[in-house]
Amino acid sequence: MNRKIIFFLVALILWFLFTFNLNYDEIIVGIFVSLLSAFIFGGYFIEKPIKIFQIHRWFWLLVYIPIFAYKCIEANLDVALRVLHPGMPLKPGIIKIKTSLKTEIAKTFLANSITLTPGTMTCEIDGDTLYIHWIWIKEEEEEKAKKMIAQTFEKYLKRIFE
């Protein structure tokens, strides 16, 4: 029940940002649609929604965004160079790493971050094991690969979500 109420509030705020006016017909439709989606999808929302209101998590999110944006742009330049290079410098493969994150939402964000950063893409999550397609294999061993790919993200995501 708790989850559904917070899902309803988040959906309503998103609705107001999208429509961006406060006529009463828009408000009525917004409340109706948010209620409907809360009843259908509320069960899939994050497990402890009270975490949304803890300020220090938002602070670490603000720290995380510039780091992530830098890595993301670096990744794009890397892949763009590989596209333009005439010799096609590819050495692809699928490796696996183990993550220490526990909650589903943290794992989802880790997988998304890995997909958007240098040459790596998450193919499959199985419990705490992530299978990652890497466009240029630098390290085949589990521990060293984890240090290169996921270490920094994990540190911040642990502070944000757990």
């Binding site: 590819l90 692809p92 493969g93 699928i94 490796i95 696996k96 299978y131 294999i137 085949e140």
Partner: peptide, 10 residues
């Protein structure tokens, strides 16, 4: 996977 791939743990 492509034939020049190095490793396939999956």
């Amino acid at each position: 996977l492509w034939h020049k791939s190095v490793i396939d743990k999956f």
